[in-house]
Amino acid sequence: MFFAKNEIIELENKNYLVLNSAIVDNEIYYKVCEVNVEENTVDSKEIYIQAIKEYGTLYIEEVKDKNIIEELDKIMKS
């Protein structure tokens, strides 16, 4: 687990708030929503991301696979 619930992931020009996480097929997915840089407003749009560590650098990647998103939606709701 790279991120925990209620943590803020800081990127180059935007931040994400971690809302939840789930494991599907041994892969960890995080449900996040965008937060402005001042950290006072939260975007209502929620997305799923994955974290990848490569050559010592941590990256996040948005999940776009519809099947995984559907499965994650089910898990997160339950």
């Binding site: 790279f2 991120f3 209620n6 943590e7 803020i8 992931i9 800081e10 990127l11 180059e12 708030l17 809302l19 929503c33 937060v35 950290e39 006072n40 407003t41 939260v42 974290a51 990848i52 650098t57 941590l58 990256y59 996040i60 990647e61 948005e62 776009k64």
Partner: peptide
């Protein structure tokens, strides 16, 4: 083709005020 990776600059604990706004305060 599908690379949309973004490097993570840092991770920190969200302030309480933000969690209240997001309605996810525990």
């Amino acid at each position: 083709v599908f690379d949309n990776r973004q490097p993570v600059k840092g991770i920190k604990k969200a302030p309480r005020s933000l969690l209240e706004k997001a309605n996810i305060i525990d």
